Computed example of a mutant assay.
Amino acid sequence: MDRFASIILTVLICVVALGQFVQVITRYVLEIPVMGLEESLLYPTMWLYMLGAVNASRENTHIRANVLEIFLSSTKQQQVLAVIGEVISLTVGIWLTIWAWDFTKYSIRVWRESPTLYLPTFYVDVALITGMVLMMIFTAWHLIKHLIVLFSPDTPTKES
């Protein structure tokens, strides 16, 4: 799974970077912009953004301001704080996932197209619901892992 995620994210970031490089060179150096390049870059950019967030959720490496952990002395207290954080993340994430689902239904119904190339934007819009569902799965998984550690009888009560 790690290898697959890193390959997909690497390919997407290379496509976006190459597209931006071509756009800068053709527009500002050669003064002949490539029509429709920005809207075609929307597809890999949105998927890169959402799959990057899914990857951070999978690895549990989202940026956090864990100031309270400094003041907690036991592992059990830190696990309780982690459970609270995951529950809040899951609650807000499910709420946003519901919104993403409503947006996806709207996108299917309207079936918008890009202005220049007439590409269906549904394939960009579906990245949002896909990413949110996957993030919620990984958040729930991390919550379960924290609960298992919290309720296991051999959880140390003091930091060593």
Rank of each mutant, 00 (worst) to 15 (best):
E31I: 13
T157L: 15
Y123K: 07
L96Q: 03
H146Y: 04
I94Q: 07
Y106V: 00
V54Y: 15
I70T: 12
C14Y: 06
L128M: 10
I8Y: 05
L42E: 08
A100M: 02
L30K: 02
E86M: 12
I13Y: 03
V87L: 13
I144F: 09
P33F: 01
D154F: 13
T130K: 10
A17P: 08
T157M: 15
T155S: 07
S107V: 01
I148Y: 05
V83D: 10
H62A: 11
T130D: 15
K76C: 02
E38N: 12
F4Q: 06
T155A: 13
E59H: 06
D154P: 02
Y123A: 14
E86P: 03
M135D: 09
W141G: 13
L150G: 13
E39I: 00
L128D: 03
A17I: 01
V110N: 03
F103G: 03
L90G: 14
V110F: 00
I32M: 09
M132I: 08
M35E: 10
W99C: 06
C14L: 13
I8T: 10
G19N: 12
Y43K: 01
I70H: 05
V29F: 00
P115C: 05
V22K: 01
L42N: 13
L150V: 04
Q78K: 15
T104K: 05
V54I: 03
F122I: 14
L18G: 09
T97N: 11
E31H: 15
V92Y: 12
R109A: 12
M132C: 15
G52W: 00
H142C: 04
R27M: 00
K76M: 02
I7A: 09
R3D: 02
L117M: 14
K76I: 00
T91S: 09
R58K: 12
I129C: 11
V83T: 05
P153I: 01
L68W: 05
Y123M: 13
R109Y: 04
K158Q: 10
T139I: 02
E69I: 07
D2T: 14
S6I: 04
S73D: 08
D125L: 03
Y118N: 08
V15S: 12
A53D: 10
I7E: 02
G85W: 00
L42R: 14
S73Q: 06
P156L: 11
S114H: 05
A5C: 13
L117Y: 10
D154N: 15
F21N: 04
M1N: 08
P33Q: 13
Q20M: 12
M136E: 15
H62L: 05
L72Y: 09
K158S: 08
L48E: 06
M50Y: 07
L41Y: 02
